[in-house]
């Protein structure tokens, strides 16, 4: 389990991570979602003790990272694909890591096999593609057979087959009862893998909820109704007891009653230019959520200096 308490990181005036408090629990994939620059990578680096927090703390299974006796056997992380020396073979890279944490050396071949790099184990990573680098990074994370895994944008640079493989791997790791914490800036990616969702924007926590609940709350369906006589249409729909709202250029009726609306229009001799069933994508829901954070900040700024920290 990873526990963050009031985790804050400031670079001079700019607050990159702002009082984050949440826990990442075992047995499920927790998606860490936020637009680029929201503070995801900074948070992950602080979890590993690489960046020093300005405030707050992180605990890995109840302990600060620095105090873990063999950290790679407790938590494995993929931060960036290229965190290898270009002139050190994949095998030797893993060997250095294994030796430093007293990890049995047979694990090297096991993880190379797992990520499909056995054939290039003795090759130097400077010739590796981005995807192969990513696989080597995942192998490094898995080396100590840790109970907690953390991946920063793991599908970056992977081909479709690789992406599928990473998704399956994460689900499998969670099914084993491990803690899996994975960041992405793509809601669609998270929708396919995550069971739980932590959303941040501008370093602040925006949501900490199960994926199912997030979908339920945000994936509304509605019918888009376009007509040259919106006023009359609105009355007709209202009379039929259907809630109507103003869309961007047409009317929107929550729900999926497209046939009913079509029939009503025919009954009243209304011309329809468009009648479509739409589903608000999770991507839009996510954008709405994060846009809110931006607005909140702009709003706060109007009332004098913004309160820092939290």
């Amino acid at each position: 389990m990873i526990e963050l308490a009031g985790l804050t990181k400031r670079y001079g005036e700019r607050t990159a991570v702002d009082g984050l408090t949440f826990s990442v629990r075992p047995g499920r994939v927790t998606g860490f979602l936020g637009p680029n620059g929201a503070g995801k990578s900074t948070t992950m680096r602080m979890i590993l003790g690489l960046d020093h927090p300005t405030g707050g703390s992180v605990r890995i299974d109840g302990m600060p990272y620095e105090r873990l006796p063999e950290p790679l056997t407790a938590i494995g992380a993929l931060l960036e694909a290229r965190a290898v020396h270009p002139g050190r073979t994949a095998h030797d890279h893993l060997l250095c890591l294994a030796q430093s944490n007293g990890i049995p050396l047979r694990r090297i071949d096991e993880v190379l096999e797992l990520v499909g790099l056995t054939a290039v184990a003795r090759k130097r990573p400077k010739s590796f593609s981005l995807g192969m680098g990513q696989r080597l990074g995942i192998a490094s994370a898995m080396l100590g057979d840790p109970r907690i895994l953390m991946f920063d944008e793991p599908v970056n640079g992977l081909d479709p087959e690789g992406i599928h493989w990473v998704r399956q791997l994460m689900k499998q790791l969670a099914a084993d009862g491990r803690t899996v914490f994975v960041s992405s800036h793509l809601m669609s990616e998270m929708a396919l893998t995550a069971d739980h969702l932590v959303v941040i924007g501008r370093g602040r926590l925006l949501a900490d909820t199960s994926m199912a609940r997030f979908i339920e709350e945000n994936a509304h369906t509605f019918v888009r109704v376009c007509t040259p006589e919106p006023e009359r249409m609105r009355d007709v729909l209202a009379a039929a007891g259907l809630p109507v709202r103003e869309g961007e250029d047409c009317l929107e009726v929550p729900g999926s009653q497209a046939p009913r609306i079509g029939e009503l229009a025919a009954e009243h001799g209304l011309v329809l230019h468009e009648l479509t069933l739409r589903r608000a994508s999770l991507e839009e829901a996510f954008m709405r959520l994060t846009r809110g954070a931006v607005e909140y900040q702009a709003h706060a700024a109007e009332h004098g200096p913004q309160a820092q920290g939290g």
Partner: peptide, 17 residues
């Protein structure tokens, strides 16, 4: 060699002291 590629992050993850 630790810094040119970000390897230092892997190294410090393995040896946080």
């Amino acid at each position: 060699g630790e810094y040119s590629t970000g390897l230092i992050r892997a190294s410090l993850s393995a040896v946080p002291r």
